[in-house]
């Protein structure tokens, strides 16, 4: 997976994206090293979701280039999709299929072998073993979210992209989500997640970054974080935001 070649897990250079009305991303640069958990903060409409969708090959950049796992986005988006797992706002599951059917379908779409074992493994991780044959429609919102995470890690991707994975979860689900994230991060997975909850993001992330005015306005290691400057960049942006 090019890990040996010393290329970073994610590299973004001069990324521009607008939807025709005003620019969302304006020359964004970002590098994420292998095995790190990066948390991106940003106000509503700052372009967090757009950035993740660009990384996940769901949008096409207007300008700039993206490398994920050393693969150039413009050259082989299909190969990128093979090595990423994505958790988005919506669970991206079929409501009228059971947990097992959903996972089987997406596993086959990824061309995986050994799917039953992988499903056992994933359902165990997200704690939905007993719901295996239940239709997704009958699951609670939090359970659907957990299944969505299961779906994202089914093909054991080296890189995880998560867009506000904690939104809409209750306290208990949040705690187990935190455990899950720490577990995943510990397993040498690279992860990028977005949030607008400062405390939770700081608790979970190894690196933090603030997305503001279409660029990464501040980025630092969690351990060497200049909290005053971080909060300054982030909170001021919230005040200014219309």
């Amino acid at each position: 997976m090019n890990r040996s070649e010393g290329t970073p897990a994610i590299k973004v250079v001069g990324l521009h994206k607008d939807f025709g009305d005003y620019p969302v991303l304006r020359g964004l640069n970002l590098t994420v090293e292998w095995g790190r958990l990066l948390v991106i903060f940003g106000a509503n409409g700052s372009g967090k979701t757009t950035l993740l969708k660009l990384l996940a090959t769901q949008y096409r950049p207007d300008r700039g280039e993206i490398w994920v796992g050393g693969i150039r986005r413009s050259q082989d988006p299909v190969a990128i999709r093979r090595i990423i797992g994505v958790v988005a706002h919506q669970p991206m599951l079929y409501q009228d299929m059971t947990c097992q059917e959903n996972l089987t379908f997406f596993g086959r779409m990824h061309g995986l072998d050994d799917i039953p074992r992988r499903i056992d493994d994933v359902l165990h991780k997200v704690g939905l073993e007993v719901r295996r044959h239940q239709r997704v429609r009958t699951l609670s919102h939090g359970m659907q979210k957990r299944l969505a995470i299961g779906r994202a890690i089914l093909h054991d991707p080296p890189i995880l992209l998560m867009d506000e994975p904690e939104s809409g979860l209750d306290q208990e689900a949040l705690a187990s989500m935190g455990d899950l994230l720490r577990m995943e991060a510990g397993s040498n997975r690279t992860a990028v997640m977005t949030t607008h909850n400062v405390d939770r993001g700081l608790a979970w992330g190894q690196e933090v970054a603030v997305l503001s005015d279409g660029v990464i306005a501040y980025k630092a290691d969690r351990d060497s974080l200049d909290e005053g400057r971080f909060r300054g960049t982030y909170l001021k942006q919230i005040e200014v935001a219309p």
Partner: peptide
């Protein structure tokens, strides 16, 4: 409506 289109688009297929 179920967001699953995104899931399809994220699969490593053309």
């Amino acid at each position: 409506d179920q967001g699953s289109l995104e899931g399809l688009l994220l699969c490593p297929v053309s």
